[in-house]
Amino acid sequence: MRAKVASTKTGPSNVLSGLSRARRGVGLGGRSEHQPRPPRRFSNRAITLSLMVFPSVLLVILIYGYPAVGAVIQSLHDGNLVQLGPYVGLQNYWTDLHNPVFWHSVRFTVVYCVVGVFGSWVVGLGLALLLRRRMHARNFFKTMLLLPWVVPVVVTATSWNWLVATPSSPVPRIAQDLGFGQLLFLDSPGLAQFIVCVYKIWLSYPFMMLMASAALAGVEEQLYEAARVDGAGAWQLFRRITLPLIARSTYISWILMFIFCIGDFQSIYLLTGGGPVSSTSTLVVLSYVTVFGDFQTGPGVAIGIIMLLVSVLVSVILFRRIKKVQVS
């Protein structure tokens, strides 16, 4: 990947040899490739590099590692936010796994992630493709289309709320005028789930659009012309040329969006608070509500730990796959 990018900037031979030399730590300053770099010099490099990552590793350990251990401990104890209660073993997990709301949240988390990832991908890719066409004020439009992602979620959740929440809000009134009857968007479980998913797509398509247009920028126009000469239709061009060429970037954008969706707290919490009757609770929201709403710290944190285990497992697997995709 990198060699490819770099080679467009300077001569390929030059960079490639530089790369391979650097990779083997083979030196500069006239040393030939057969003479290995003296170990001391090499470890200097290693020390500098380690110092350069040190602050971020420290922060990751402080803000992720330490709390993870703390949370595991907390999930094994009774008690509240301030005071750790007696050790109860796995009872908090037991409570969660026998709670129907938990399983409902698991199901909705899956739905939310799938809709969030693929819905926003379809919209984002569609817009990215449209923005490739020749048009006026393209950059202006592009910036405008990114606004749902730029404007803070607190603000857009508020305005979505205003648009759909009460019977006198604009969207329910329009729906009524169109003959759908009185729809209480955020008061009936099914509709609330629908709105939350639409809202998530609306929030996330800009990210997908950015990823897609970056990938599309690398697709050569000539390929299409050649295929058009051979009589391929628009769908075929898309299916056989565009999609395969952006496959790698698409895959990575799905993974990232999946990670963003599964950990997403504020867009659901600020729009519906997880309600009505927990219908729009994902695991994150359920965990928050259990800890800070029901004051059941143990079971709430246990939900977080279950999520943590699943996320880490999934991300390690995905990470391996990304590495493979990158190599091929």
Binding site: I63, Y64, Y66, P67, A68, V69, G70, A71, Q74, L81, I259, I262, G263, F265, L283, V284, S287, Y288, V291, T297, G300, V301, G304, I305, M307, L308, S311, V312, V314, S315
Partner: peptide, 10 residues
């Protein structure tokens, strides 16, 4: 991919 909710309480 770490769910932030886990780190909030600790």
């Amino acid at each position: 991919s770490f769910p932030q909710i886990v780190s909030v309480v600790p």
